[in-house]
Write a protein that binds this DNA or RNA. Sequence first.
DNA 1: TGCCGTACTATGGCATACCATAATCTGACG
DNA 2: CGTCAGATTATGGTATGCCATAGTACGGCA
Lengths: 228, 228
Amino acid sequence: MNAATEPLRVDRPAKTLRELTLEKMREAIFSQHFRPGDRLVERDLCERLGVSRTIVREVLRHLETEGLVSNLPARGPIVSRTTAAEALQIYEIRGALEAIAARACAEARQPATIAALDACLARILAGYARGNSTLVLEATSDFYRTLFASSGKEVAWNIVNALTMRINHLRSMTIKTPGREVEGPRQMQRIVEAIRAGKGEEAHAAALQHVASASAIAQRLLREREGG
Amino acid sequence: MNAATEPLRVDRPAKTLRELTLEKMREAIFSQHFRPGDRLVERDLCERLGVSRTIVREVLRHLETEGLVSNLPARGPIVSRTTAAEALQIYEIRGALEAIAARACAEARQPATIAALDACLARILAGYARGNSTLVLEATSDFYRTLFASSGKEVAWNIVNALTMRINHLRSMTIKTPGREVEGPRQMQRIVEAIRAGKGEEAHAAALQHVASASAIAQRLLREREGG
DNA sequence: TGCCGTACTATGGCATACCATAATCTGACG
DNA sequence: CGTCAGATTATGGTATGCCATAGTACGGCA
């Protein structure tokens, strides 16, 4: 952090309509306002969002490229359905990337990073204690954001971020699984401890394991859903 | 492969103008017709491509989301410049994902997969022997495509594919490095041998190493470029 | 009564036109 | 000769409108 250049950056508040719309749409999908499989009819979205089709189309293209929206030929765009197989792949990729970031953090061993991770962990525990799922999800995202940002893995973070949106519904179900409020934070704690100790490979392994157990839960949920 | 459903699929030849334009643009960037940093003025592209700005803009949005194009505020789109730091990250991510795919292939141990990989390898060697870089690059891409397809890692493949385009210029320089025509194929051979032997972890490690050495060469090239 | 063809409608594909603003040029004034 | 203000231009942002086609509903004919 260079105090002369970094602070107080205003980051272009003059957003374009397209950017605003993108955020709105993302939020709408994220919050399950649009469910997987729902059709996204361009003209309907225009009316709802109060923007022109040009904007809506560009935003849909963007979301499609991210994988959040699929375009059925001669049907139009829908919110992507994530199959069990895809979810498995997504968890696997996330695991690999988060493991890389965790290892890098451990090797850097920055006190500021560790403090930030501790703070996120505290929020996660608070969220579980109060039964506040939103807080848990937010703090978990912040945990990983910190992990990637601190290790300078912006590219990986962008990928993880996009992938995470595609398994959003699974995430919110996963954290509500009995026992997850103990196991999840404990595994994340292990990541932080490994980073604190500067043990790269341990952090790597701990991150892998955390995602792996989330993946296992998700797979069980998906089987249940498909089974009945 | 289900013979009843898979073969002869025509795959929607009625492509939209947008899709055609996307391919053209990708190809133009891939073939260095547009270089990193070049401005992509919408109206100029319209004229050159013979399509409307609507199309061009949607395509640019798509490429931007993929990371191939950057949008400078109040300046417009340019072909993304890949910094040394980004390239390092991209190689690291590719390594992790290719390692996962290689491991999965080894665990599956499909004769068809191994045969296809062998064929790719032969083409790579032929390409080096004839000094045909294009063939080398193509066959290398096919090698990895096979690796990901055979292991059913479509999601990862999409990511790798997008990332690869961003380091395209480095790839073509890397394979021309003295000694690479020996080391590269040898490392890929090791991946195939591990798969043939059904040794997942060995395949994983071999894939990691292959990318790591490519990354090392790329870093050297980038330092040279920035140095003088 | 059931099936097929036709008309209609919903919806995406594409092009054009206008507007706002940032970059740039130009000329006058100090 | 330099600098600053105003005009001009380049360029992206946005809206609108028409067209083609896939899906759908309806009516007639067997």
